[in-house]
Amino acid sequence: MSHARARQAIEIKLMAWATARPIRVANFEEGFEAESGEIYLRAYLLPASTTCRYLGGDAYEYTGVYQISIVCPAGQALGIAESLVDELSSLFRVDTELSRSGFEGLITEPVEQGPTITESASYTVPTSFTYRGIADQSPVGA
């Protein structure tokens, strides 16, 4: 499934950026426990419907939204999260190529900041962008 390949292409780029900062990224593949006072990211793939616009069904088109939520401890200045939004906007610019194991795609919409979600011990600033790509569906050996 090429949504998985799109996710992998995005996460490789995100993890390289996060490791250089350093900032941790929570995902479903491993356990995660936030440390006291830690700023971290939560990342999600929200796939949309798969389409086939080609005669013979040789390639499928995959689109979706990738969300990166910035989680900060309560009392932390909002400006810190907003600077991370700016950095993510630079990292995932429109027309950034996404390529992974036969999936070829692009980021099609800019990073957009959603409303801040407040809780007693933390607040979350969600960001998201859309991707679109094509993967060849021809049988192996064809």
Results as ranks from 00 to 15, higher is better:
residue 73 P to F: 09
residue 131 Y to Q: 01
residue 130 T to F: 07
residue 24 R to Y: 04
residue 18 A to G: 12
residue 70 I to Y: 13
residue 64 G to S: 10
residue 41 L to H: 01
residue 103 F to V: 00
residue 92 F to R: 12
residue 58 D to K: 12
residue 26 A to L: 05
residue 74 A to M: 08
residue 77 A to T: 10
residue 131 Y to H: 00
residue 124 T to I: 06
residue 116 T to I: 00
residue 84 L to A: 07
residue 91 L to P: 01
residue 39 I to N: 09
residue 67 Q to I: 03
residue 111 V to W: 05
residue 49 S to M: 01
residue 48 A to L: 14
residue 102 G to D: 06
residue 22 P to Q: 15
residue 97 E to Y: 04
residue 19 T to C: 04
residue 40 Y to A: 06
residue 118 T to G: 05
residue 63 T to A: 15
residue 42 R to N: 09
residue 93 R to Y: 10
residue 44 Y to L: 14
residue 128 S to P: 05
residue 63 T to E: 15
residue 113 Q to S: 07
residue 112 E to S: 11
residue 39 I to H: 07
residue 55 L to V: 13
residue 109 E to I: 03
residue 75 G to Q: 10
residue 12 I to S: 06
residue 82 E to M: 13
residue 98 L to H: 08
residue 127 T to L: 00
residue 97 E to K: 12
residue 122 S to I: 00
residue 39 I to A: 11
residue 86 D to T: 05
residue 137 Q to T: 06
residue 107 I to Q: 13
residue 65 V to G: 11
residue 113 Q to A: 13
residue 82 E to S: 12
residue 91 L to H: 10
residue 71 V to E: 09
residue 15 M to S: 03
residue 60 Y to R: 13
residue 70 I to R: 13
residue 134 I to A: 14
residue 60 Y to A: 14
residue 20 A to K: 00
residue 121 A to N: 00
residue 92 F to K: 11
residue 130 T to R: 15
residue 38 E to I: 07
residue 86 D to C: 06
residue 125 V to Y: 02
residue 84 L to F: 07
residue 19 T to E: 14
residue 120 S to R: 02
residue 24 R to V: 07
residue 97 E to I: 10
residue 121 A to F: 02
residue 110 P to F: 05
residue 74 A to S: 09
residue 125 V to C: 11
residue 46 L to R: 15
residue 122 S to L: 06
residue 93 R to D: 14
residue 22 P to M: 13
residue 17 W to A: 06
residue 61 E to M: 12
residue 44 Y to V: 09
residue 79 G to W: 00
residue 94 V to A: 14
residue 82 E to V: 11
residue 86 D to Y: 05
residue 52 C to F: 02
residue 97 E to S: 07
residue 51 T to K: 04
residue 66 Y to W: 04
residue 136 D to S: 15
residue 13 K to R: 13
residue 73 P to W: 04
residue 101 S to D: 12
residue 40 Y to C: 03
residue 35 E to W: 01
residue 23 I to W: 00
residue 52 C to Q: 05
residue 52 C to T: 08
residue 133 G to R: 10
residue 12 I to G: 05
residue 136 D to R: 11
residue 95 D to K: 15
